[in-house]
């Protein structure tokens, strides 16, 4: 009899307690994602008059996006570079992760993983700048190669230099992600493969890679996302000659304050990243045979 009236406040209190703990995440999303996203979308329909943004309902920026050939070219180039970098970094990282997970002893493994964090102590911009010293025609790489008669001209400001920059940006992170994923593999599976006379290569292909697929794909997705939006490498190692969407955004804003154009490019970038990330993650966590 007395339970009825008391039960409601308790339930209410519990609900409130739960809501309090759950609140920060949606609040964060609202303030730092939903609201800026709404503003960005609105901005894409505004106009610019005399270098100043004016609220408007104009589709000029969208028309520009859809009808301008170099915007499409830039999008395709950015996709190619970011995709290429993701594949390259994944391939480069895998042997290293394999060694960290299966060859090194625990103490050495801990030391190597700690060393992989060290590059993040220095600004990425500084690291990319220092690559210029290495890759310039009169740089360190050519100083080493010249006596061997192997001098390479034009390394800087090339797609090669950009791949070096992208690897600088995300290789350590991808190695760490892959290593974590490989370390989590159930060792009995590997022993079973060996017992069934599976050679080393086949063990990697048939057991380790499928088992570590989520980690490998998540690493590649991270690499793609970081490279797709990167501004520093295309500018300082690509020499601005191979412009990506991030450079295009800077260009539209730098000359004439074309924020609506920058907004539509940003929205396209978000759409591409979201689609790629969702597709990749659904592949990563897809059950075998489904």
């Amino acid at each position: 009899m007395t339970k009825g009236p008391l039960a409601l406040p308790v339930r209410l209190r519990r609900a409130l307690y739960g809501a309090l703990w759950a609140a920060p995440m949606p609040a964060w999303q609202l303030v730092f994602f939903a609201a800026p996203f709404a503003l960005l979308t609105a901005l894409s329909f505004w106009s610019v008059r005399n270098f100043r943004l004016v609220p408007d309902v104009s589709t000029a920026a969208w028309d520009w996006l859809l009808t301008t050939d170099y915007v499409r070219d830039t999008l395709l180039r950015t996709l190619a570079y970011a995709g290429g970098a993701a594949v390259l970094v994944t391939l480069l990282a895998f042997p290293a992760a394999l060694a960290i997970a299966f060859v090194l002893r625990p103490r050495a493994r801990a030391a190597v993983l700690a060393l992989l964090v060290v590059p993040f102590f220095t600004s990425y911009l500084v690291r990319v700048y220092s690559w210029q010293t290495f890759l310039a025609d009169n740089g360190i790489v050519n100083a080493v190669l010249r006596p061997l008669g192997l001098e390479v001209a034009g390394m800087l400001n090339s797609p090669f230099a950009m791949m070096v920059g992208y690897a600088t940006l995300c290789l350590p992170l991808v190695v760490i992600l892959q290593s974590m994923s490989l370390l989590a593999i159930d060792r009995t599976l590997i022993h079973a493969a060996h017992n069934l006379r599976c050679g080393p290569l086949r063990t990697v292909g048939a057991v380790i890679v499928p088992a570590a697929r989520p980690g490998i794909v998540v690493g590649a997705v991270f690499a793609f996302i970081l490279c797709f939006g990167d501004f520093v490498t295309p500018l300082y190692l690509g020499g601005g000659k191979h412009p990506t969407l991030a450079i295009l955004i800077a260009d539209t804003v730098k000359a004439g304050q074309q924020w609506p154009r920058a907004a539509v490019v940003a929205l396209v970038m978000m759409a591409v990243l979201l689609t790629t990330a969702l597709a990749a993650l659904s592949f990563a966590y897809r059950r075998r045979g489904s």
């Binding site: 170099y70 830039t74 412009p243």
Partner: peptide, 11 residues
């Protein structure tokens, strides 16, 4: 127009 030409040139 000038900015467009510059972006096209870079591309």
């Amino acid at each position: 127009d000038w900015n467009d030409l510059w972006s096209r040139y870079k591309n």
